[in-house]
């Protein structure tokens, strides 16, 4: 089954990449964009038997750096 892991920078952690995207949007003439935060999406194809605990462990041990990032796990129906 498909699992999506959404990794985002914690609030308060500076995101220079997001800021550059925001400036670029402004340059293209889009108004009203107050802030941009860039994260990443990691898609896993896993066996049905992989538990929520195991997925959580994967996030904490590798997929996210808990010092600077939050993560959210989403199981996607096939």
């Amino acid at each position: 089954m498909k699992v999506r892991v959404h990794v985002s920078l914690k609030p308060g952690v500076l995101d220079p990449q997001g800021r550059a995207i925001q400036h670029s949007l402004e340059g293209l003439g889009f108004n009203g964009v107050h802030d941009v935060r860039a994260g990443k999406l990691i898609e896993l194809d896993v066996d049905e038997s992989v538990s929520d605990e195991a997925l959580d462990d994967m996030c904490r041990k590798l997929l996210a750096n808990m010092v600077i990032e939050n993560y959210r796990i989403e199981r996607v129906a096939a």
Partner: peptide
């Protein structure tokens, strides 16, 4: 401890 992020000036 801590982490190293993208340079603030990109």
């Amino acid at each position: 401890p801590g982490a190293l992020l993208r340079n603030s000036g990109i």
